[in-house]
Design a protein around this nucleic acid. Structure first.
Lengths: 349, 349
DNA sequence: TTTAGCACTCTACCACTAAGAGTGCAAAAA
DNA sequence: TTTTTGCACTCTTAGTGGTAGAGTGCTAAA
């Protein structure tokens, strides 16, 4: 065989046939044989020649046959090469874009926007949609309130970035009175309103050491409160929609596999870790099959895109589905959705 | 045949055999035939006699055979009769009770308690656990706060029952200043702290009409705020855990059915409606198969119990699984879990 | 009323076959 | 050297028939 066996330098013909094979398999779901491929590719070659090429591609680990007398299907490596260098994406229609745009912008609070985005992703692609909730780097403290509960418990309410409210029950060492708490809150509001949340704690410790000798009851209260609040520690989370879409694909017909997958969705941690990786990568990112590193996802591909506003990356969103998915359509949809979400979030503030 | 064909008056023997059949089928999963049933029942009868009885039970619609030469399995009507009058429940072990008790009481806020309860239900029964979030009839207002956001938006924070925090962005007709809002909040806090939430609105309208002529700016503000808050209107919700457990049962092997079920879980409304019915019914309640009235649940049974504290019903919890489930164990577990949850919520306040 | 006997039915399993799809290889053609 | 033709071979799928086992319903006897 004179075809270059070099992975990085497939011949024109190899590329052409690989692309045709992957595309046909994606739309058909059946292993594709040499005869079919000849017709599909448009090349004027005989089936035998195509067979030779296919044998080469198989040697390269790009395609495989499920059994002797079936056609070939792409391996994950094959999919990877396909999306990296053979794929011609198909821009979403104006209609689709507008639909996404309108429906996202109709929502009026962050949670609703994320939910809608996720369900739109799943609806348009017929896969499962994922949206990581934005990690707001700059969490600026707007307002603090402490309310004494029974005994040694205090309810803390934080208003962050002018609209998000977090609350937390703090278990304290000793009971505090309303007025103590009020003073502490007033102090914090006066000194730290508008400041970045993650810096509040260190600032307080600074000020405390400066004024150690005149350490007041107030200061002690403030310190206990802020310590307990775990400021700046933001728990990550994501919103998922359309999991049930995944139950329709033959590739996911294995109930055990499907179960593992759904458990991963519930557990959240693995998926979060993956989204975290995608966050590092910036822009569009694909994980095909075992590339994700999780057994539960070994038959799945994940397509993600970071979303940003004002050039700052806020989070990541995407879809998850079987490795055999219409990348051509899915990738651009994830892309525009990320852009739309970014600007929707921006216009919220 | 001389057996009474009256549905309400099965003979001893019919009851005995039906019980044996249902129990055997529940633990085995296989249709049970006359020979097996003879052994199982402990009666000294021949298989032929048992066959006659089975034929009668089939005429009554209590059992059926999947095909000619298989044994019989209970119909939903059969299950119903079984749980209503043949079932001898099996008290949960001390161990199980303590495990549930300890793990629920280890949690420190309502959401965590509900989550844990739900996942314990699913863990212990190997089915899916459901917990409806309590509808707190008496929502006593503890504290109100209003913060102006950009333009015509105000962030309202309500502290209810000393520990739950609700917040909502209110779109107002005109911009309000901080001090206006502060005054309104002060007014509400002074007059209505500790009062029942659902009554606040009507009280305000009353007072307004009394003092109509001296209608102040303050009053107008207060009214707009409270109107926008939609006080007392509480949206229902539930917590679910262990859905994936359901993927293991042969009865639920049909992917399409399973998918419908999972969609119902996501949609929430049907399940909520069902839980609502269970709430009316008080105490333990079973829905077997089509009794629930939802197609997605036609192969499922739901076992619920209301939970209460101080004699007041707060909500409902339970499990959902295939109609073929170990009712004998499941029912008492749902029962004690409801009691434990009730007292855990009580000790929270 | 109950039991024994028996014919009958249906499923599950197995082995076998035939058709169809697709391959790989070797020799011929370009 | 590359491509094609021809062909033997492999494997899947669907269908067939046959058998064993489980269970039933019915009838006649106990």
């Amino acid at each position: 065989m004179s075809e270059k066996a070099d992975f990085n330098e497939l011949t024109e013909r190899q590329q052409h046939l690989l692309r045709a094979l992957v595309e046909h398999y994606i739309s058909d779901g059946q292993p594709v044989g040499s005869r079919t491929l000849v017709k599909e590719s448009g090349l004027s070659l005989s089936a035998a020649t195509v067979r030779n090429v296919m044998a080469d591609l198989e040697d390269l680990g790009l395609i495989k046959s499920p059994h002797t007398s079936a056609g070939r299907i792409p391996t994950n490596k094959g999919y990877r090469l396909f999306v990296d260098s053979l794929l011609t994406v198909e821009k979403p229609t104006q209609e689709e874009v507008e639909r996404i745009c309108n429906r996202i912008e109709a929502e009026d609070n962050i949670q609703a926007i994320l939910d809608k985005t996720s369900s739109l992703l799943s609806e348009v692609t017929q896969l499962a949609g994922l949206v990581m909730v934005p990690r707001i780097e700059a969490q600026s403290l707007r307002h603090v309130e402490f309310l004494p509960l029974s005994e040694n418990r205090v309810l803390a309410i934080l208003v962050i970035n002018d609209k998000d409210v977090q609350n937390k029950v703090i278990h304290t060492r000793r009971p505090y009175t309303s007025s103590e708490l009020e003073q502490a809150a007033n102090y914090l509001n006066q000194v730290f309103a508008g400041r970045d949340l993650s810096s509040v704690r260190s600032h307080i410790l600074n000020e405390m050491s400066e004024a150690r000798e005149q350490m007041t009851q107030l200061m002690a209260t403030v310190i206990e409160m802020t310590n307990a609040l775990d400021l700046g520690k933001q728990q990550q989370d994501y919103v998922i929609a359309g999991q049930t879409n995944l139950m329709g694909y033959d590739q996911m017909a294995d109930l055990d596999k499907l179960r593992q997958l759904f458990e991963a969705f519930n557990q959240k941690q693995d998926i979060l870790h993956l989204l975290d990786q995608a966050l590092e990568g910036q822009g569009i990112q694909l994980f095909i099959g075992e590339e994700s590193g999780y057994e539960a996802l070994e038959d799945c591909s994940i397509v993600t895109s970071t979303y940003e506003s004002d050039g700052e990356i806020l989070g990541v969103l995407g879809i998850i589905g079987p490795t055999r998915m219409p990348y051509k359509k899915v990738i651009p949809i994830v892309d525009v959705t990320a852009k739309i979400l970014g600007s929707a979030l921006k216009s919220m503030s």
